[in-house]
Simulated scan of single mutants.
Amino acid sequence: MGEPYYFYVLLCADGTFYGGYTRDVGARVATHNAGKGAKYTQTRRPVRLLYAEAFADQHAALSAEWHFKHQSRAAKEAFLQAHHIQWR
Rank of each mutant, 00 (worst) to 15 (best):
F79D: 01
A74K: 07
R88G: 13
W87L: 12
Q58K: 12
N33F: 12
D14Q: 12
C12T: 15
A52W: 06
D14T: 13
G15D: 08
A61V: 00
A27E: 14
G35P: 13
L49T: 09
W66Q: 05
A56F: 04
R44K: 15
D57W: 00
L50W: 05
R44D: 02
Q81I: 01
H84T: 06
G26L: 11
A13W: 03
T16L: 07
L10V: 14
H32E: 06
V25L: 10
T31V: 15
K36R: 15
G19Q: 11
T41F: 02
S63Q: 04
K36V: 12
A56K: 04
G15Q: 06
Q81D: 03
T43V: 13
H83T: 05
A13Q: 08
L62V: 01
Y21M: 02
G37S: 10
H67L: 14
T16S: 11
G15L: 03
A54V: 08
K69T: 09
K69F: 06
A52Y: 04
A75Y: 01
V29S: 09
K39T: 08
S63P: 10
T43Y: 12
H32P: 00
D14F: 08
K36L: 12
W66A: 02
A56V: 02
D14G: 13
I85V: 15
P46I: 06
E53K: 06
D14S: 09
T31H: 11
T41Y: 01
Q86C: 07
K76P: 07
E65S: 02
Y8H: 09
H70I: 03
R45H: 12
K39C: 00
L62F: 04
K76I: 03
D57L: 01
A30N: 03
A75E: 06
G19L: 05
G35S: 06
F79W: 03
T31M: 13
A75R: 01
L10T: 15
N33A: 10
A34Y: 09
H67I: 11
G26V: 10
L50C: 05
Q71V: 01
L49C: 02
A13M: 02
